[in-house]
Design a protein around this nucleic acid. Structure first.
Lengths: 160, 160
DNA sequence: GTATTCACTGGGCAATATGCTCGGTGAACG
DNA sequence: CGTTCACCGAGCATATTGCCCAGTGAATAC
């Protein structure tokens, strides 16, 4: 789905001040309230905006350590491993990938020492042949989407 | 900051139905409105809840391909590389890590072919010695936080 | 050329939620 | 025993929501 500049501005505004209402948005953007409402409905129904879930900071919850683990999986054990990892709360995210590893997962832990416990729990299943972990030191670019949204809006505007 | 079960239920409810109001939450949770309001203020001021930004799906925006790139950086060029990557909209996230690579970034692209363009743009700076890319095929566990929140709430409840 | 469709505007309405305040209660703590 | 703290339940003025409508302009179809 292509989005235009107004959609982009709506998303950006929502990202900056999420608890803002539709009425206030329409004032800021200089359009009618119904327009904003219609745009938001469209964005949501098309899946561009998946939701407005609270962004929880694991560090503030007592999990300041983040790591990425690359896993090599024994042939045919993928499903088992996926199911296993889904049961580990410290696994925040799991992807299957091409390349040297077969899976990549994002982990958090209460400390570097605790990370060992988490990894032990992660690899506590037959299907994982090898795990290689990289601990995150800094996060110069936290998960972001606005630049991409603006890019998409510009592209749309230029090409139709 | 430690959270208790009520905090956990608030976050979980918020995750399931984000556009819900404070009043409705208090009804669902069976507590007074002021309590929910106070808890949410506390969670936000302590940084546990960072915000309620819209979750945008890159795929719905026309970027269905996700990849992770591991970068090796020339000594002392880290800052330059960080600044460079921050200007690339398709770079959704960037971490500096321990281990074989020096940085790990999440990329999106319009197609596998387009991914080449993105990678070319990413590595178009002196400081990057080597880049190794893994394309994401499946995402069995999308970024999630609820299990961790529940874990944290349980821990708190048990230990004080 | 004309009709239709569509997004947007600007307005009005009742119902609802919000931000705020207050007094009262019970549990934990010094 | 007094203090502190979180919570409850209630009230109030104000703001927002969801919903409706008629009118306008631009693009599209016939």
């Amino acid at each position: 789905m292509a989005i235009d500049r107004l959609d982009g501005r709506i998303i950006a505004l929502l990202a900056r001040e999420p608890r803002i209402g539709v009425l206030e948005m329409s004032r800021r953007l200089g359009v009618a309230r119904g327009t904003v409402q219609a745009r938001m409905d469209r964005l949501q129904s098309h899946g561009v905006i998946r939701g407005f879930g609270p962004e929880v900071d694991p560090a503030a919850l007592g999990y300041p350590v983040t790591a990425f683990a690359t896993l090599q999986i024994r042939q045919g054990q993928g499903a088992d491993v996926r199911a296993h990892l889904a049961t580990v709360p410290e696994v925040l995210e799991l992807h299957t990938t091409t390349g040297t590893g077969d899976m990549l997962c994002r982990l958090v832990a209460r400390s570097n020492a605790d990370l060992q416990r988490v990894i032990d729990r992660v690899v506590a299943i037959e299907g994982i042949v090898r795990a290689s972990t990289a601990i995150v030191m800094e996060n110069p670019v936290p998960l972001r989407i606005i630049p991409l949204v603006e890019q998409a809006a510009e592209d749309r505007e230029r090409n139709g």
